[in-house]
Amino acid sequence: MKNTLLVGGSGGQGVMSVGTMLAESAAENGKYATFMPVYGPEQRGGSARCTVIISDDEIMSPLPKKVKTLIAMNEQSYKKFINELEEGGILVMNSSRVTSTVAREDIRIVSLPADDIALETGNIRNANIVMIGAYLASTGAMDPAEFMKSLEHKFKNKPEVIEQNRKALDKGAEIGKQTS
């Protein structure tokens, strides 16, 4: 199985870091993974996107025209990338920031207020982790528990960070599961 994912947001929303974590975690779990960042000339506040491919087989092209899942962290990236989602694909959108009404009827939508959930679970900066939880649970790309193990390893010297991430991931996964 080959899962193609586009994560879009603005600089500072953790788009690149969550894409990297996902690819690293997939690799740690014996899957093939590629992470492809696209940087504009901007930095903080500018647009950021990355493509992550997770596959059971070796990945040949890292440049899909359309992806199976789009994680839209904000309104701007929703508008910019919605047409890169393939027919029957899944849109995971951060309803705290995406204000548009989704016009496409050929996709499945997982909508969750990731900023609010992240704030409730301890740190607004974990909105990206909330979104990943929803992504993993709704697509089955990887077991959220496996991803959590990678986070535990990554933040092994910061137990409070692990706990915040766990809550954020679990909450996202809970919502993702309901729509899977």
């Binding site: 990297t20 690819a23 690799a27 093939y32 993974a33 590629t34 992470f35 492809m36 960042p37 940087y39 990945i59 890292p62 440049l63």
Partner: peptide
């Protein structure tokens, strides 16, 4: 530049 910035195994 794409291969320069991609991450893979």
């Amino acid at each position: 530049g794409a291969l320069g910035s991609i991450k893979e195994l």
